[in-house]
Computed example of a mutant assay.
Amino acid sequence: MSNQIAANRYAQALFELAQEKNILQTVSSELELAKRVYESTPELGRVLNHPKISDAQKREFIQKSFGDAISETSLHTFFLLIDRKRIDILVPMITTFQALAYEAQNMAEAVVYSAKPLTEQDEQQVANVFAGKVGKANLVVKNIVNQDLIGGIKVRIGDRIFDGSVKAQLDRIERELSTGTR
């Protein structure tokens, strides 16, 4: 079974369990935390995927690492992935789970590229403006700083891109000037 198919199955099962227990938001934020930790700490992935470290040691490591920061449901999901030798699908599973959770809550993730970091107020304003444009009740804003944009913002929500950056405007003007349409 391919990794993405397995990730989808585990994500769907966890999603249904979280909905049944009415802890969807809790599990969602815990998994987001785990994903950030996993992606920002390469040593964690090496330990969890190392064949000479026993499953019991990996479980203990997860227990000590996350401790009380995550619920029993999330913790047991990690243990299940370790026991079934599927810890390599952790990040794709979390990504799929997040997509399912956002859809169930009529939310979406908006990746906002800007020349400088956005304030919380700026992020909230972007969420308010673009939520209606994509037909969602709320947006979760992730800000990525890209100084090549010069100014303005570029917003990606799913497969839609809204580009209001200065760089994009300059590129449009350059194309128009070079084709003589201006």
Rank of each mutant, 00 (worst) to 15 (best):
N22E: 15
N22D: 15
I23P: 12
I23N: 12
L24M: 05
L24R: 06
T26H: 12
T26S: 13
T26G: 10
V27I: 13
V27Q: 04
S29G: 12
S29N: 12
E30I: 00
L31W: 01
L31F: 06
A34M: 04
K35V: 12
R36C: 03
R36G: 08
V37M: 11
Y38L: 10
E39L: 13
E39S: 07
E39C: 08
S40F: 00
S40W: 01
T41H: 14
T41V: 10
T41N: 15
P42F: 12
P42W: 13
E43W: 06
R46E: 14
R46P: 07
V47H: 02
L48K: 06
L48A: 01
N49H: 11
H50C: 06
H50D: 07
H50G: 00
H50V: 03
P51F: 03
P51Q: 04
P51A: 07
K52G: 10
K52M: 15
K52L: 15
S54I: 11
D55H: 11
D55T: 11
A56S: 15
Q57I: 07
Q57H: 14
F61S: 11
K64F: 04
K64Y: 06
K64N: 10
S65G: 10
F66R: 02
F66D: 08
F66G: 09
G67C: 14
A69R: 11
I70W: 01
I70P: 00
S71R: 00
T73K: 12
S74W: 11
S74F: 13
S74V: 14
T77A: 14
L80M: 09
L80K: 03
L81H: 00
L81Q: 00
I82L: 09
I82W: 01
I82V: 04
D83H: 04
R84N: 11
K85R: 04
R86E: 04
R86V: 01
I87N: 05
I87L: 06
I87T: 02
D88S: 09
D88I: 03
L90G: 02
L90I: 02
V91T: 04
V91H: 08
P92S: 10
T95K: 01
T96N: 08
T96D: 01
Q98R: 01
A99Y: 04
A101Y: 05
Y102V: 03
Y102M: 13
A104N: 15
A104F: 14
A104G: 15
N106Q: 13
A108D: 05
A108G: 06
A108F: 06
E109Y: 08
E109A: 03
A110S: 09
A110Y: 00
V111A: 11
V111T: 09
V111S: 05
V112F: 09
S114H: 04
K116E: 13
P117A: 05
L118D: 06
L118S: 06
L118F: 07
T119D: 08
D122I: 06
D122W: 03
E123W: 02
E123D: 14
Q124E: 11
Q124P: 09
Q124F: 07
Q125K: 08
A127C: 13
A127M: 05
A127Y: 09
A127P: 13
A127K: 00
N128P: 05
N128T: 14
V129M: 10
G132I: 03
G132A: 07
G132C: 06
K133T: 03
K133I: 05
K136D: 00
L139Y: 08
L139I: 10
L139D: 01
V140I: 13
V140S: 07
K142Y: 06
K142H: 12
N143Q: 12
N143D: 13
N143F: 01
I144T: 08
